[in-house]
Amino acid sequence: MEIKSPAQTGSAVAEASHEDFTEFKQHVHRYLFVFYALLFGTLATVGASYIPWGNHEINIGVALFIAVCKGSLVACYFMHLISERRLIYGILMFTAFFFLGLMFLTLSAYLNFPLDTVTPYGH
């Protein structure tokens, strides 16, 4: 995270303060598109959950895949992550790494250990 030259950063500030209207009109169209995509994604998740793929794991995979797509849309466009500063990406990459570490290392405590020992006595 070295300091950039003033010329480079100065233009970014100017850009932010004099955002021109036509550009924002385009943004609005993009937001509406994302909105429709999210509604469609919701219906698709519900629909896919009723399809008998034969294996419940596939249902879980499909539902989570759609959820990840929807989540990415929200994060990228509504939260403007698609055009965010490097610093924010850095923070979020660390967070994502530790998030995955928490998820998978916790589960992998059962790698060579029977899973039903999590709740030893059954139901």
């Binding site: 998740t45 519900v46 959950s49 419940h56 879980i60 539902a63 759609i66 959820a67 929807k70 929200v74």
Partner: peptide, 11 residues
């Protein structure tokens, strides 16, 4: 909520 919904309602 986008994640909670399928996890709790559908799966």
């Amino acid at each position: 909520w986008i994640f909670l919904f399928p996890v709790l309602y559908l799966l």
